[in-house]
């Protein structure tokens, strides 16, 4: 099977870092800015960035509904930080009109760890990532306030979930794309591969 083609939503944020991480993890990254480009990917990354900005641009460039449809149809999606917020069904401490894609049955608290002076790095054990702990970079990071029954918590900080998975949807409050350790992206590429092989068998 050829390397999966994984889109990165490129409206704003750290697109380049995700592209590097996906390449290292054995995928072919492509930037996605238009609806037509969404039809050509096996999976999608929602990068780190400013969730209010990306949400507004999703609405302006008419990507919000197409993305919701893709998520509902089972497209594997990985969101880091702002991407986790966009995948959540609801957000606390966001803007009241902030558009979310949804799909992941979690309520996320925005900037939960505080402002930039509270941003931090820490080593975390992540379920599904064997080997030494993942070095995690948290930047004005959210955490998961509430998670539905179908959501698996993969990692926590101070008992707050910071990495979660629900079927083909993966989300981290931290930025695995910023370190040289691409095992979390490897986990997502595996999710994309297995979802693609399911699609192929149909």
């Amino acid at each position: 099977m050829s390397d999966p083609r994984i889109g990165i939503l490129a409206l704003q944020g750290d697109v380049r870092e995700h592209a590097r991480a996906l390449t290292a993890a054995g995928a072919r990254p492509v930037e996605v800015r238009r609806e037509a480009e969404l039809d050509e990917v096996d999976g999608l990354v929602l990068p780190g960035g400013e969730s209010t900005t990306i949400g507004r641009l999703l609405r302006v460039f008419a990507l919000l509904e197409p993305l919701r449809a893709k998520v509902a149809a089972g497209l594997p999606v990985f969101g880091s930080c702002a991407g986790m917020i966009l995948l959540a069904r609801d957000v606390v401490d966001g803007r009241p009109d902030q558009p979310l894609i949804g799909g992941l049955d979690v309520v996320v608290r925005r900037n939960a760890f505080g402002r930039q002076v509270d941003s931090f790095e820490a080593d975390l054990d992540v379920v599904g990532v064997p080997g030494p702990p993942v070095h995690a970079v948290f930047i004005r990071a959210p955490w998961v306030d509430k998670a539905g029954g179908a959501v698996e918590v993969l990692a926590s900080v101070a008992e707050a979930p910071v990495a979660v998975r629900q079927g083909p949807l993966l989300a981290t409050a931290f930025h695995p794309e910023l370190t040289g350790d691409f095992r979390v992206h490897g986990l997502f590429v595996d999710i994309v591969r297995s979802s693609r092989s399911v699609a192929d068998r149909r």
């Binding site: 409206l11 944020g13 697109v15 380049r16 780190g48 931090f120 790095e121 970079v137 930047i139 930025h175």
Partner: peptide
Amino acid sequence: QAGTAGVKRGMAEMLKGG
């Protein structure tokens, strides 16, 4: 660990394209 070069530079990475 707060105030590392990683979180300082990383914060700017999140502003890209904005």
